[in-house]
């Protein structure tokens, strides 16, 4: 608790502009998906969102640099970020849940095993097997083959784990006020993030062009892309966040004991890392 120094901003344009921008993006996305036009509208929405976020964060950074935030405000940000990451975790939990359900229940049932195995009457030629290369209905083309986890996915795992370590080193350096070291290790982390994204891009290219893993390739393709896809989006966002933090480090923001912007991005990055480990195990290895 603080002594009445809690900062309450007066008024702000960013909330309402942000919600309008999100609305524009969603309408654009809908028009694009349903009527195959409106990409420009969607782009306008995305650009506006980025713009509003930039301005909003600029205000926050200025207020923070201006010393308007006390330790109670710092705790508010911590609670906020912590619960936000929990919500992200539950978002991924939905997709993991779908994967587990399909593998443990739906596919065995369709193949004639378990309590609802009688369903196999409808799919006489179907054999339950994971990874699902031949979906129950022959008109749905499954993947030709699936990735070996011990090639690119393993490389990506190593990259992300390494990036978590480099980020921690950068954080420690900041705490010791070693600015240059912090900057270098943070830059390394950003670079590793970029490598991950590129490798994931290569893997997607391979998936579509040589492995026959597509969104339409039955439930394997669906779960594969929704899990790795949303994870990939999070890595991209995380990398952008870290890049922004890098800029702020270079500008000399953050003090040794007051740098929640830095810490929040670390939390986010570690979260993305943990999700990948789960993904590597359940999507690629098992």
């Amino acid at each position: 608790m603080s002594g009445g120094s809690y900062y309450v901003p007066t008024t702000s344009w960013w909330p309402i502009l942000g919600s309008l921008a999100l609305g524009v993006m969603m309408v654009g996305a809908g028009v694009k998906l349903v009527y195959d036009t409106g990409a420009l509208l969607m782009l306008l929405g995305v650009v506006s969102i980025i713009g509003v976020m930039g301005l909003w964060f600029r205000d926050v950074v200025r207020e923070s640099m201006g010393g308007l935030y006390d330790s109670q405000m710092d705790r508010s940000f911590r609670w906020g970020m912590g619960w936000f990451i929990f919500s992200e975790l539950m978002f991924f939990a939905a997709f993991f849940g779908a994967l587990f359900y399909v593998r443990t229940f739906a596919i065995p049932w369709l193949g004639g095993e378990g309590e609802k195995g009688v369903s196999a009457l409808l799919w006489p030629d179907f054999v339950a097997h994971w990874p699902l290369l031949s979906p129950p209905d022959a008109s749905v083309l499954g993947p030709d083959q699936v990735f070996s986890p011990w090639q690119l996915p393993l490389v990506n795992t190593l990259i992300l784990v390494t990036s978590s370590i480099t980020l921690t080193v950068a954080h420690e350096a900041l705490k010791l006020d070693e600015r240059i070291t912090c900057r270098n290790w943070l830059a390394g982390t950003v670079l590793l993030g970029c490598c991950f994204i590129i490798i994931q891009g290569v893997e997607y290219y391979e998936a579509y062009n040589h492995y026959g893993i597509t969104l339409e390739a039955g439930i394997f393709g669906a779960t594969f892309f929704i899990l790795t896809g949303f994870h990939g989006v999070h890595v991209i966002i995380g990398t952008i966040i870290l890049a922004c933090i890098l800029v702020r480090i270079c500008k000399g923001h953050f003090s040794t004991d007051h740098h929640f912007g830095f810490e929040a991005s670390c939390w986010y990055w570690h979260f993305v890392d943990v999700v990948w480990v789960g993904l590597f195990i359940f999507v690629y290895v098992l």
Partner: peptide, 14 residues
Amino acid sequence: NFGTSFFDAAGGGD
């Protein structure tokens, strides 16, 4: 919109 089969038994979903 993207032809996945999360909720379609034909592709292995439910």
